[in-house]
Nucleic acid binder design. Structure first.
Lengths: 196, 196
DNA sequence: ACAAAAAATGAACAGTGTTCAATTTTTTTC
DNA sequence: GAAAAAAATTGAACACTGTTCATTTTTTGT
Protein backbone atom coordinates (compact mmCIF):
# COMPACT_ATOMS: atom_id res chain seq x y z
CA UNK A 1 0.00 0.00 0.00
CA UNK A 2 1.21 3.50 -0.71
CA UNK A 3 2.90 5.25 2.16
CA UNK A 4 0.90 8.43 1.91
CA UNK A 5 -2.36 6.62 1.84
CA UNK A 6 -1.59 4.78 5.06
CA UNK A 7 -0.45 7.96 6.77
CA UNK A 8 -3.57 9.78 5.67
CA UNK A 9 -5.70 6.93 6.88
CA UNK A 10 -4.03 6.76 10.26
CA UNK A 11 -4.17 10.52 10.73
CA UNK A 12 -7.88 10.56 9.92
CA UNK A 13 -8.65 7.66 12.21
CA UNK A 14 -6.66 9.37 14.93
CA UNK A 15 -8.58 12.58 14.43
CA UNK A 16 -11.86 10.75 14.83
CA UNK A 17 -10.72 9.18 18.07
CA UNK A 18 -9.56 12.51 19.45
CA UNK A 19 -12.74 14.28 18.41
CA UNK A 20 -15.08 11.70 19.83
CA UNK A 21 -13.24 10.41 22.85
CA UNK A 22 -10.34 12.74 23.59
CA UNK A 23 -6.61 12.45 23.33
CA UNK A 24 -6.39 10.10 26.31
CA UNK A 25 -7.91 7.42 24.11
CA UNK A 26 -5.36 7.90 21.39
CA UNK A 27 -3.02 5.03 22.14
CA UNK A 28 -0.98 3.02 19.70
CA UNK A 29 -3.08 -0.09 20.20
CA UNK A 30 -6.44 1.64 19.95
CA UNK A 31 -5.30 3.47 16.85
CA UNK A 32 -4.14 0.17 15.46
CA UNK A 33 -7.46 -1.49 16.17
CA UNK A 34 -9.53 1.40 14.82
CA UNK A 35 -7.50 1.76 11.65
CA UNK A 36 -6.88 -1.90 10.90
CA UNK A 37 -3.14 -1.43 10.70
CA UNK A 38 -0.82 -3.10 13.13
CA UNK A 39 1.02 -1.31 15.90
CA UNK A 40 4.27 -1.81 14.06
CA UNK A 41 2.97 -0.04 10.99
CA UNK A 42 2.13 3.04 13.01
CA UNK A 43 5.72 3.13 14.19
CA UNK A 44 7.04 2.59 10.70
CA UNK A 45 5.01 5.53 9.48
CA UNK A 46 5.48 8.01 12.30
CA UNK A 47 8.45 6.82 14.31
CA UNK A 48 6.70 7.27 17.62
CA UNK A 49 3.42 8.44 19.08
CA UNK A 50 4.82 11.86 19.98
CA UNK A 51 5.41 12.48 16.34
CA UNK A 52 1.91 11.42 15.50
CA UNK A 53 0.47 13.85 18.03
CA UNK A 54 2.73 16.58 16.69
CA UNK A 55 1.23 16.07 13.26
CA UNK A 56 -2.27 16.22 14.71
CA UNK A 57 -1.38 19.46 16.48
CA UNK A 58 -0.03 20.92 13.29
CA UNK A 59 -3.35 20.18 11.59
CA UNK A 60 -5.17 21.93 14.42
CA UNK A 61 -3.01 25.03 14.18
CA UNK A 62 -3.35 25.00 10.43
CA UNK A 63 -7.10 24.84 10.68
CA UNK A 64 -7.12 27.85 12.99
CA UNK A 65 -4.80 29.72 10.66
CA UNK A 66 -7.15 29.24 7.75
CA UNK A 67 -10.03 30.61 9.75
CA UNK A 68 -7.90 33.64 10.49
CA UNK A 69 -7.26 34.08 6.80
CA UNK A 70 -10.98 34.32 6.14
CA UNK A 71 -11.23 37.41 8.33
CA UNK A 72 -11.27 40.41 6.03
CA UNK A 73 -12.04 43.91 7.18
CA UNK A 74 -10.46 47.23 6.47
CA UNK A 75 -10.61 48.38 10.05
CA UNK A 76 -7.67 46.96 11.95
CA UNK A 77 -9.54 47.34 15.21
CA UNK A 78 -12.48 45.31 13.95
CA UNK A 79 -10.16 42.77 12.46
CA UNK A 80 -8.46 42.18 15.79
CA UNK A 81 -11.84 41.81 17.44
CA UNK A 82 -12.83 39.28 14.85
CA UNK A 83 -9.61 37.37 15.36
CA UNK A 84 -10.45 37.16 19.03
CA UNK A 85 -13.95 35.90 18.27
CA UNK A 86 -12.73 33.42 15.70
CA UNK A 87 -10.13 32.22 18.11
CA UNK A 88 -12.54 31.75 21.00
CA UNK A 89 -15.06 29.98 18.81
CA UNK A 90 -12.44 27.74 17.32
CA UNK A 91 -11.16 26.73 20.70
CA UNK A 92 -14.64 25.89 21.90
CA UNK A 93 -15.55 23.96 18.78
CA UNK A 94 -12.30 22.03 18.82
CA UNK A 95 -11.93 21.54 22.53
CA UNK A 96 -10.29 18.13 22.35
CA UNK A 97 -7.89 19.20 19.65
CA UNK A 98 -6.97 22.44 21.33
CA UNK A 99 -6.40 20.63 24.58
CA UNK A 100 -3.79 18.52 22.81
CA UNK A 101 -1.86 21.49 21.53
CA UNK A 102 -1.08 22.50 25.10
CA UNK A 103 -0.97 19.28 26.91
CA UNK A 104 1.56 17.69 24.73
CA UNK A 105 5.16 17.94 25.80
CA UNK A 106 8.20 16.77 23.98
CA UNK A 107 10.47 14.53 25.93
CA UNK A 108 13.58 16.32 27.16
CA UNK A 109 15.75 14.42 24.75
CA UNK A 110 14.13 15.85 21.66
CA UNK A 111 13.01 19.31 22.65
CA UNK A 112 12.86 20.89 19.28
CA UNK A 113 9.73 21.49 17.28
CA UNK A 114 9.86 21.07 13.58
CA UNK A 115 10.31 24.22 11.54
CA UNK A 116 6.96 23.84 9.80
CA UNK A 117 5.29 23.61 13.18
CA UNK A 118 6.86 26.79 14.49
CA UNK A 119 6.25 28.61 11.23
CA UNK A 120 2.55 27.83 11.47
CA UNK A 121 2.49 29.62 14.81
CA UNK A 122 4.57 32.59 13.79
CA UNK A 123 2.53 33.28 10.66
CA UNK A 124 -0.50 33.69 12.89
CA UNK A 125 1.35 36.07 15.16
CA UNK A 126 2.35 38.02 12.08
CA UNK A 127 -1.28 38.47 11.12
CA UNK A 128 -1.90 40.13 14.44
CA UNK A 129 1.25 42.18 14.18
CA UNK A 130 0.11 43.51 10.85
CA UNK A 131 -3.13 44.78 12.39
CA UNK A 132 -1.16 46.30 15.25
CA UNK A 133 0.97 48.19 12.79
CA UNK A 134 -2.12 49.76 11.26
CA UNK A 135 -3.78 50.47 14.57
CA UNK A 136 -0.78 51.89 16.38
CA UNK A 137 1.43 53.60 13.82
CA UNK A 138 3.32 55.46 16.53
CA UNK A 139 4.30 52.30 18.40
CA UNK A 140 7.97 51.47 17.92
CA UNK A 141 8.61 48.19 16.10
CA UNK A 142 10.36 46.44 19.00
CA UNK A 143 7.68 47.52 21.45
CA UNK A 144 5.01 46.47 19.00
CA UNK A 145 6.59 43.09 18.70
CA UNK A 146 6.50 42.56 22.45
CA UNK A 147 2.91 43.83 22.62
CA UNK A 148 1.76 41.33 20.06
CA UNK A 149 3.67 38.46 21.62
CA UNK A 150 2.21 39.16 25.02
CA UNK A 151 -1.32 39.46 23.69
CA UNK A 152 -0.90 36.25 21.78
CA UNK A 153 0.46 34.42 24.79
CA UNK A 154 -2.39 35.75 26.91
CA UNK A 155 -4.99 34.52 24.45
CA UNK A 156 -3.23 31.18 24.23
CA UNK A 157 -2.97 31.07 27.98
CA UNK A 158 -6.61 31.85 28.52
CA UNK A 159 -7.68 29.20 26.08
CA UNK A 160 -5.21 26.76 27.53
CA UNK A 161 -6.56 27.14 31.02
CA UNK A 162 -10.18 27.04 29.98
CA UNK A 163 -9.78 24.07 27.67
CA UNK A 164 -7.86 22.24 30.32
CA UNK A 165 -10.72 22.68 32.74
CA UNK A 166 -8.20 22.98 35.56
CA UNK A 167 -9.71 26.33 36.31
CA UNK A 168 -13.12 26.21 34.67
CA UNK A 169 -14.55 25.08 37.96
CA UNK A 170 -13.64 28.30 39.67
CA UNK A 171 -13.95 30.78 36.90
CA UNK A 172 -17.38 30.81 35.33
CA UNK A 173 -16.72 33.73 33.02
CA UNK A 174 -16.97 32.26 29.59
CA UNK A 175 -14.33 31.99 26.96
CA UNK A 176 -15.49 34.50 24.36
CA UNK A 177 -16.29 37.10 26.97
CA UNK A 178 -12.82 36.72 28.45
CA UNK A 179 -11.09 36.97 25.09
CA UNK A 180 -13.09 40.04 24.08
CA UNK A 181 -12.60 41.72 27.41
CA UNK A 182 -8.91 40.98 27.40
CA UNK A 183 -8.46 42.32 23.88
CA UNK A 184 -10.50 45.41 24.58
CA UNK A 185 -8.65 46.30 27.76
CA UNK A 186 -5.29 45.45 26.29
CA UNK A 187 -5.81 47.50 23.14
CA UNK A 188 -7.00 50.44 25.19
CA UNK A 189 -3.88 50.15 27.32
CA UNK A 190 -1.64 50.07 24.27
CA UNK A 191 -3.42 53.07 22.82
CA UNK A 192 -2.42 55.10 25.86
CA UNK A 193 1.08 53.68 26.12
CA UNK A 194 1.63 54.18 22.40
CA UNK A 195 2.30 57.82 22.87
CA UNK A 196 4.82 57.43 25.65
CA UNK B 1 4.36 4.29 62.58
CA UNK B 2 2.10 7.29 62.91
CA UNK B 3 -0.02 8.07 59.89
CA UNK B 4 0.93 11.74 59.74
CA UNK B 5 4.57 11.00 59.91
CA UNK B 6 4.42 8.65 56.94
CA UNK B 7 2.43 11.12 54.88
CA UNK B 8 4.84 13.91 55.73
CA UNK B 9 7.75 11.70 54.81
CA UNK B 10 6.26 10.66 51.49
CA UNK B 11 5.26 14.19 50.61
CA UNK B 12 8.78 15.45 51.33
CA UNK B 13 10.41 12.67 49.38
CA UNK B 14 8.04 13.39 46.52
CA UNK B 15 8.90 17.05 46.61
CA UNK B 16 12.59 16.27 46.37
CA UNK B 17 12.01 14.07 43.35
CA UNK B 18 9.94 16.73 41.62
CA UNK B 19 12.41 19.48 42.40
CA UNK B 20 15.45 17.57 41.25
CA UNK B 21 14.12 15.47 38.41
CA UNK B 22 10.67 16.72 37.47
CA UNK B 23 7.18 15.35 37.81
CA UNK B 24 7.74 12.73 35.13
CA UNK B 25 9.97 10.89 37.58
CA UNK B 26 7.36 10.89 40.29
CA UNK B 27 6.01 7.36 39.92
CA UNK B 28 4.62 5.13 42.61
CA UNK B 29 7.57 2.76 42.43
CA UNK B 30 10.23 5.45 42.40
CA UNK B 31 8.57 7.20 45.31
CA UNK B 32 8.42 3.86 47.08
CA UNK B 33 12.08 3.21 46.51
CA UNK B 34 13.18 6.71 47.48
CA UNK B 35 11.09 6.80 50.64
CA UNK B 36 11.59 3.25 51.79
CA UNK B 37 7.86 2.57 52.02
CA UNK B 38 6.19 0.01 49.84
CA UNK B 39 3.96 0.86 46.91
CA UNK B 40 0.96 -0.39 48.84
CA UNK B 41 1.64 2.02 51.68
CA UNK B 42 1.54 4.97 49.32
CA UNK B 43 -1.88 3.84 48.20
CA UNK B 44 -3.04 3.32 51.76
CA UNK B 45 -2.03 6.86 52.58
CA UNK B 46 -3.16 8.73 49.49
CA UNK B 47 -5.62 6.48 47.69
CA UNK B 48 -4.01 7.09 44.33
CA UNK B 49 -1.23 9.03 42.69
CA UNK B 50 -3.58 11.73 41.43
CA UNK B 51 -4.38 12.57 45.00
CA UNK B 52 -0.73 12.70 45.87
CA UNK B 53 -0.06 15.14 43.07
CA UNK B 54 -3.06 17.21 44.12
CA UNK B 55 -1.52 17.56 47.57
CA UNK B 56 1.79 18.58 46.04
CA UNK B 57 0.00 21.19 43.95
CA UNK B 58 -1.77 22.52 46.98
CA UNK B 59 1.57 23.00 48.68
CA UNK B 60 2.85 24.89 45.67
CA UNK B 61 -0.14 27.21 45.59
CA UNK B 62 0.12 27.68 49.33
CA UNK B 63 3.74 28.61 49.03
CA UNK B 64 2.91 31.23 46.41
CA UNK B 65 0.10 32.57 48.56
CA UNK B 66 2.43 33.12 51.48
CA UNK B 67 4.79 35.06 49.30
CA UNK B 68 1.88 37.23 48.28
CA UNK B 69 1.07 37.84 51.92
CA UNK B 70 4.53 39.24 52.49
CA UNK B 71 3.89 42.01 49.98
CA UNK B 72 2.99 45.12 51.95
CA UNK B 73 2.73 48.54 50.40
CA UNK B 74 0.23 51.31 50.81
CA UNK B 75 0.07 52.05 47.10
CA UNK B 76 -2.31 49.61 45.41
CA UNK B 77 -0.55 50.18 42.11
CA UNK B 78 2.83 49.30 43.53
CA UNK B 79 1.34 46.33 45.32
CA UNK B 80 -0.04 44.91 42.11
CA UNK B 81 3.31 45.40 40.44
CA UNK B 82 4.98 43.57 43.27
CA UNK B 83 2.47 40.74 43.00
CA UNK B 84 3.41 40.40 39.37
CA UNK B 85 7.12 40.31 40.21
CA UNK B 86 6.63 37.88 43.05
CA UNK B 87 4.55 35.71 40.82
CA UNK B 88 7.03 35.68 37.96
CA UNK B 89 9.94 35.00 40.30
CA UNK B 90 8.08 32.25 42.05
CA UNK B 91 7.23 30.53 38.81
CA UNK B 92 10.83 30.67 37.64
CA UNK B 93 12.20 29.44 40.96
CA UNK B 94 9.69 26.64 41.17
CA UNK B 95 9.54 25.65 37.53
CA UNK B 96 9.00 21.96 38.10
CA UNK B 97 6.33 22.54 40.70
CA UNK B 98 4.51 25.14 38.71
CA UNK B 99 4.56 22.90 35.68
CA UNK B 100 2.68 20.31 37.71
CA UNK B 101 -0.07 22.70 38.69
CA UNK B 102 -1.07 23.01 35.06
CA UNK B 103 -0.19 19.72 33.63
CA UNK B 104 -2.14 17.68 36.02
CA UNK B 105 -5.63 16.73 34.99
CA UNK B 106 -8.20 14.87 36.99
CA UNK B 107 -9.66 11.84 35.33
CA UNK B 108 -13.11 12.47 33.96
CA UNK B 109 -14.66 10.27 36.63
CA UNK B 110 -13.61 12.46 39.50
CA UNK B 111 -13.55 15.97 38.12
CA UNK B 112 -13.92 17.89 41.33
CA UNK B 113 -11.16 19.63 43.15
CA UNK B 114 -11.20 19.63 46.91
CA UNK B 115 -12.64 22.70 48.57
CA UNK B 116 -9.36 23.54 50.29
CA UNK B 117 -7.63 23.47 46.93
CA UNK B 118 -10.08 25.85 45.31
CA UNK B 119 -10.07 28.11 48.35
CA UNK B 120 -6.32 28.46 48.11
CA UNK B 121 -6.75 29.81 44.60
CA UNK B 122 -9.65 32.12 45.33
CA UNK B 123 -7.94 33.71 48.33
CA UNK B 124 -5.15 34.77 46.02
CA UNK B 125 -7.59 36.25 43.55
CA UNK B 126 -9.16 38.12 46.43
CA UNK B 127 -5.84 39.74 47.26
CA UNK B 128 -5.69 41.16 43.77
CA UNK B 129 -9.31 42.18 43.86
CA UNK B 130 -8.68 44.14 47.03
CA UNK B 131 -5.96 46.13 45.30
CA UNK B 132 -8.24 46.70 42.33
CA UNK B 133 -10.89 48.11 44.62
CA UNK B 134 -8.43 50.68 45.90
CA UNK B 135 -6.99 51.49 42.52
CA UNK B 136 -10.28 51.77 40.61
CA UNK B 137 -12.92 53.00 43.02
CA UNK B 138 -15.25 53.91 40.16
CA UNK B 139 -15.20 50.41 38.68
CA UNK B 140 -18.48 48.59 39.32
CA UNK B 141 -18.10 45.45 41.47
CA UNK B 142 -19.20 42.98 38.79
CA UNK B 143 -16.94 44.55 36.20
CA UNK B 144 -14.11 44.62 38.69
CA UNK B 145 -14.62 40.97 39.37
CA UNK B 146 -14.32 40.10 35.70
CA UNK B 147 -11.27 42.34 35.32
CA UNK B 148 -9.47 40.58 38.11
CA UNK B 149 -10.41 37.13 36.91
CA UNK B 150 -9.18 37.88 33.41
CA UNK B 151 -5.91 39.35 34.64
CA UNK B 152 -5.40 36.38 36.89
CA UNK B 153 -6.09 33.94 34.13
CA UNK B 154 -3.72 35.81 31.82
CA UNK B 155 -0.92 35.69 34.35
CA UNK B 156 -1.60 32.03 34.95
CA UNK B 157 -1.77 31.44 31.23
CA UNK B 158 1.50 33.20 30.55
CA UNK B 159 3.26 31.25 33.25
CA UNK B 160 1.66 28.07 32.10
CA UNK B 161 2.91 28.47 28.58
CA UNK B 162 6.36 29.57 29.57
CA UNK B 163 6.84 26.88 32.20
CA UNK B 164 5.61 24.30 29.79
CA UNK B 165 8.22 25.35 27.30
CA UNK B 166 5.76 24.61 24.50
CA UNK B 167 6.29 28.14 23.35
CA UNK B 168 9.53 29.18 24.96
CA UNK B 169 11.28 28.20 21.79
CA UNK B 170 9.47 30.79 19.76
CA UNK B 171 9.02 33.54 22.28
CA UNK B 172 12.26 34.72 23.79
CA UNK B 173 10.72 37.53 25.77
CA UNK B 174 11.30 36.58 29.35
CA UNK B 175 8.78 35.83 32.01
CA UNK B 176 9.11 38.83 34.33
CA UNK B 177 9.13 41.24 31.42
CA UNK B 178 5.97 39.70 30.03
CA UNK B 179 4.18 39.76 33.37
CA UNK B 180 5.15 43.37 34.02
CA UNK B 181 4.23 44.48 30.54
CA UNK B 182 0.93 42.67 30.68
CA UNK B 183 0.05 44.17 34.04
CA UNK B 184 1.08 47.64 32.98
CA UNK B 185 -0.90 47.60 29.76
CA UNK B 186 -3.86 45.94 31.37
CA UNK B 187 -4.04 48.37 34.27
CA UNK B 188 -3.75 51.31 31.90
CA UNK B 189 -6.62 49.88 29.88
CA UNK B 190 -8.77 49.42 32.96
CA UNK B 191 -7.99 52.99 34.04
CA UNK B 192 -9.53 54.28 30.81
CA UNK B 193 -12.43 51.86 30.78
CA UNK B 194 -13.14 52.56 34.44
CA UNK B 195 -14.87 55.80 33.60
CA UNK B 196 -17.11 54.34 30.92
C1' DA C 1 1.05 -13.25 76.95
C1' DC C 2 -2.41 -13.57 73.86
C1' DA C 3 -6.16 -12.40 70.67
C1' DA C 4 -8.00 -8.95 67.76
C1' DA C 5 -7.57 -5.14 64.97
C1' DA C 6 -4.89 -2.29 62.04
C1' DA C 7 -1.28 -1.38 58.90
C1' DA C 8 2.29 -2.57 55.55
C1' DT C 9 3.61 -5.38 51.90
C1' DG C 10 4.76 -6.71 47.05
C1' DA C 11 3.33 -9.99 43.54
C1' DA C 12 -0.04 -9.76 40.02
C1' DC C 13 -3.19 -7.36 36.61
C1' DA C 14 -4.26 -4.40 32.90
C1' DG C 15 -2.74 -0.81 30.64
C1' DT C 16 1.02 2.25 28.24
C1' DG C 17 5.04 3.23 24.38
C1' DT C 18 8.39 0.89 21.82
C1' DT C 19 11.38 -2.66 19.50
C1' DC C 20 12.68 -6.17 16.29
C1' DA C 21 12.96 -11.05 14.51
C1' DA C 22 9.87 -13.35 11.66
C1' DT C 23 6.54 -13.17 8.13
C1' DT C 24 4.25 -11.36 4.12
C1' DT C 25 4.11 -8.50 0.15
C1' DT C 26 6.15 -6.08 -3.58
C1' DT C 27 9.67 -5.28 -6.85
C1' DT C 28 13.39 -6.57 -9.65
C1' DT C 29 15.89 -9.67 -12.51
C1' DC C 30 16.35 -13.24 -15.61
C1' DG D 1 6.16 -16.31 -15.66
C1' DA D 2 9.35 -17.99 -12.02
C1' DA D 3 12.94 -17.16 -8.85
C1' DA D 4 15.54 -13.96 -6.12
C1' DA D 5 16.05 -9.69 -3.73
C1' DA D 6 14.17 -5.88 -1.44
C1' DA D 7 10.75 -3.64 1.14
C1' DA D 8 6.94 -3.38 4.12
C1' DT D 9 3.99 -5.39 7.68
C1' DT D 10 3.31 -7.80 11.68
C1' DG D 11 2.53 -8.85 16.66
C1' DA D 12 4.81 -11.05 20.49
C1' DA D 13 7.94 -9.40 23.92
C1' DC D 14 10.18 -5.76 26.89
C1' DA D 15 10.16 -2.26 30.24
C1' DC D 16 7.51 0.80 32.11
C1' DT D 17 2.99 2.86 34.24
C1' DG D 18 -1.15 3.01 38.06
C1' DT D 19 -3.69 0.08 40.89
C1' DT D 20 -5.50 -3.93 43.68
C1' DC D 21 -5.72 -7.21 47.40
C1' DA D 22 -4.51 -11.67 49.73
C1' DT D 23 -0.89 -12.32 52.76
C1' DT D 24 2.26 -10.99 56.33
C1' DT D 25 3.72 -7.96 59.92
C1' DT D 26 2.93 -4.68 63.50
C1' DT D 27 0.23 -2.44 66.92
C1' DT D 28 -3.37 -2.27 70.20
C1' DG D 29 -6.42 -3.75 74.03
C1' DT D 30 -7.15 -6.86 77.67
Amino acid sequence: MARDYIQENLVNTGRTIIKEKGVEFLTARKLSEASGYSVGTIYNQFGNMDNFILIQNYLTLDSLYHRFLKVKTDSAYERLNMYASVFAEFVMENRNFWFMVFNFHLKQSERTFSITYLRRISTMVMLIEKSFKELYPLLKPDKRHVSVQVLWICLFGVSSLLTTSSLESYSKVEQTKICKFLLNTYLTGIKVLEKI
